[in-house]
């Protein structure tokens, strides 16, 4: 028994270190490969921004399109998802619960299936099919539940019905209450949801691959293209660009979450 203890105590830290390496080392390799003159030769071939420059030349349209789609997705989820989150927090009717379940379906089902369904249903609407708005539709379906739930979670943690009654007693109608009481108090959830929506939209591939056309390629679609047809350095440099776009969002999200757990007002009894 005594002999076994050290071995037992070692398993967890060793496995933890290995797991961290497994998850982090490839990212580091990818970053390095993206700025190495010749990856096959190694770092001694010199560091360069040449590949990043080539990515910019070849794929900058995808970067702009991804930003455009992400911001448009954000706009739609703000306009549609914030009110939806409010309804989810305010109502416990069966219909609202059913709607909540239904809206998660596009997230629970493989993106490929959603993409296929959209292509088969709208493929004949040529202009719609060819425009970036077609991709926007897929991204909205996929991200809407995240915004709505993030907002609903924050609103459920405060005593919203009474706050609204108080505002109504002071003369505020439904729309006034929504903008002066509901939205300001949902701010944390809206912000967290917004970061989530933008991050998900920028990284979405499974639906987008079915929806894109040669003229509407998003960043992940471009990534798949570069991995298949370009040299490793270019794929890596492109990945580096993607990381530079997405990591700040991830850090902001974690900062927000850490701040939220510290200052979240405790629910009154």
């Amino acid at each position: 028994m005594r002999m076994k203890r050290p071995a037992f105590a070692l398993i967890a830290p060793v496995l933890t270190v290995l797991t961290c390496l497994f998850l982090i080392v490839p990212i580091g390799m990818s970053i390095l490969a993206g700025v190495t003159e010749n990856y096959f030769v190694g770092v001694r071939s010199g560091l360069t921004l040449r590949w990043v420059g080539e990515v910019w030349g070849l794929y900058r349209e995808t970067i702009f399109l991804s930003l455009q789609v992400a911001l448009a997705t954000l706009a739609v989820t703000l306009v549609v998802g914030v009110p939806l989150g409010y309804v989810l927090a305010r109502s416990d009717s069966r219909w609202v619960r059913a709607l909540e379940e239904a809206l998660v379906l596009p997230v629970a089902m493989p993106g490929l299936a959603t993409g296929l369904a959209l292509v088969l249903a709208f493929g004949t609407f040529r202009d719609f099919r060819a425009s970036w708005v077609f991709i926007l539709v897929g991204h909205v379906l996929f991200t809407l539940p995240f915004m709505a739930r993030s907002v609903a979670a924050v609103l459920s943690s405060i005593n919203l019905p009474v706050l609204e009654e108080a505002a109504a007693s002071l003369g505020a109608g439904f729309v006034q209450r929504f903008f002066t009481i509901v939205v300001p108090n949902a701010k944390g959830g809206v912000l967290a949801g917004a970061l989530m929506v933008v991050t998900l939209s920028m990284g979405e591939f499974n639906i987008t691959w079915m929806l894109h056309t040669p003229l509407t390629k998003t960043l992940p679609v471009g990534l798949a293209d570069s991995y298949a047809s370009m040299r490793l350095e270019i794929g890596s440099a492109y990945t580096l660009v993607f990381l530079l776009m997405i990591v700040p969002l991830l850090i902001a999200m974690q900062w927000l979450a850490a701040r939220g757990t510290r200052t979240l007002p405790s629910k009154r009894g």
Binding site: V162, A166, A167, T180, N185, K187
Partner: peptide, 10 residues
Amino acid sequence: FQSYALFPNM
């Protein structure tokens, strides 16, 4: 209101 219902955002 019993729970005051003060608006926390103000």
